[in-house]
Amino acid sequence: MRCAVLQFPGSNGDIDALEALRSFENVTAELVWHQEKSLDSFEFILLPGGFSYGDYLRCGAIARFSPIMQAVQKAAASGTLILGICNGFQILCEAGLLPGTLIRNRNLLFRCEERLVRVETSDSPFTKKISSGSVLHLPIAHGEGCYFAKEETLQELHDKDQVLLRYATSKGEITKDANPNGSCENIAGICNQKRNVFGLMPHPERACDELLGSTDGRMIFESILDHVHHGAGTSL
């Protein structure tokens, strides 16, 4: 699988993502600077975490106008798998590739800790190797990760099965205490209607090695790899 990890001024999860991807077999991964204009040679595109453009104006608002984002729009339209982690999720929302937006954590705290998320569906290229209802240990690190969308958008996400991850307890219960940032309906990650663009606030790339305390992030990348190598046909 040929992977691109995009690099914006202020990205800081780019090297983590690169290292995580390179720990898989049959994967090549390279950094692509935001001034580049083409992503045609890649099968998977990752927008990493960080503080692109210092989060000026709104998180992700300025990165959206980087030249590379035209190529991301084109890749999204052609069905290429795109993953936005943390700031990458914020950029995808600002770019209109995912609905809703991410606002200041309701409790105003910058949350940097391990959290539990429940996988809501296996019906996506990003979760196809994970049983629905599984609880993953993933780290979070954000101050503006409160997912917000209008009532009709939330309803549509629900109707089209676009919520892939929710903050949950170890038993998989969706509770207020399990929600670190006040996100609507405990939403931690969503995909688009075509199911090829996925944004999430937790960091799967920082949960790919025993040394880091969890390898649950690998399941997301294994799903992506499986999808790219075997197509939509195979699943659990």
Binding site: I103, R104, N105, R106, N107, L108, C146, F148, K150, G182
Partner: peptide, 11 residues
Amino acid sequence: AAVLDPAGVAT
């Protein structure tokens, strides 16, 4: 109006 403004509430 429908969007929570946590910074406003804290202030």
